[in-house]
Write a protein that binds this DNA or RNA. Structure first.
Length: 261
DNA sequence: GAGAGTGTTGTAAC
DNA sequence: GGTTACAACACTCT
């Protein structure tokens, strides 16, 4: 392991290094936007958060490339000036943690710590318990700005600024509404929209605005599907009105004033 | 060149 | 408690 920018490591970089040395990743989990890479024995895990601009890129080893592997090798220059941590594998493969803004982190955690951290995450799209019934129940207990509630990882986890704006668009609800003002029908539309947006975004391997790439270094294709995010001043594809952007709940917030209410 | 804004989240202040 | 401002940071855009 090569730690080029120690502050990216939460806790001791030395202990992390020693722990990873000769060890194996045996299982990969995710909770919200947090990656959980379990080590041999599953008593410890490497937690990785990419925050805004983090990238985790896997480069195949020469042996794998010679043997033929299912994915194309990453073409870009690696490491680059944003490669702050590099994990090297025995077969010559490497995992690069790149992060322009340096907000992301790597952290070693034991089973209890992982349990404590993940227990704070809320109902999550993509998990089995993200049902309409559960969604409505969680929403029922909340009040205040819809956008803020959807972004709150302790209430619903996994949704970020892009998918919240897009989900509100598809539900035809303004993100500036309060939760308590939403009718039963609107709440159900919102649930459906979130499921639809997340499912399609995953299918298209995410959304690249600037830096996001998947483990193979490829950009996400959901960017082409965005209806409001990043489209301020453009025409709404549903009603023809002009997409607006405001600052709301501390975040850039995009919506169509013509067909979101 | 200055200033605002950027996909996240934790903390502090009100 | 909710809300807001701000912090972390480097870069792009206006």
């Amino acid at each position: 392991m090569d730690v080029r920018l120690p502050k990216i490591i939460r806790g001791s970089a030395e202990i992390l290094k020693t722990t990873l040395e000769g060890n194996q990743f045996v299982r990969i989990d995710r909770r919200g936007k947090l990656l959980i890479l379990w080590l041999s024995g599953e008593q410890q895990a490497l937690l990785i958060h990419l925050k805004m601009t983090g990238q985790l890129i896997y480069r195949h080893g020469k042996e794998q490339i010679a043997g033929g592997h299912p994915w194309p090798a990453f073409e870009g220059e690696l490491p680059n000036k944003y490669s702050h941590v590099i994990l090297e594998f025995e077969d010559g493969a490497a995992l690069f943690f790149n992060d322009l803004r340096q907000f992301g982190f790597l952290q070693l955690a034991n089973t209890d710590e992982v349990a404590l951290i993940t227990s704070k995450y809320g109902l999550e799209p993509g998990r089995g318990d993200f049902t309409e019934e559960n969604f409505l129940e969680v929403l029922q207990k909340k009040r205040g700005k819809l956008k803020a509630v959807l972004l709150d990882q302790t209430i619903f986890s996994g949704l970020g600024n892009i998918y919240v704006d897009e989900s509100c668009f598809w539900a035809e609800i303004l993100p500036t509404r309060t939760v308590e003002s939403l009718s039963e029908g609107e709440r159900k539309r919102l649930f459906t929209a979130i499921v639809q947006v997340i499912d399609e975004a995953i299918l298209l391997r995410g959304t690249t605005v600037h830096d996001y790439v998947d483990a193979n270094g490829n950009r996400g294709n959901y960017s082409d599907k965005l209806q409001v995010y990043g489209r301020v001043g453009e025409t709404c594809q549903r009603c023809g009105a002009t997409i607006q952007k405001i600052k709301f709940a501390g975040r850039g917030t995009h919506f169509c004033p013509g067909c979101q209410f």
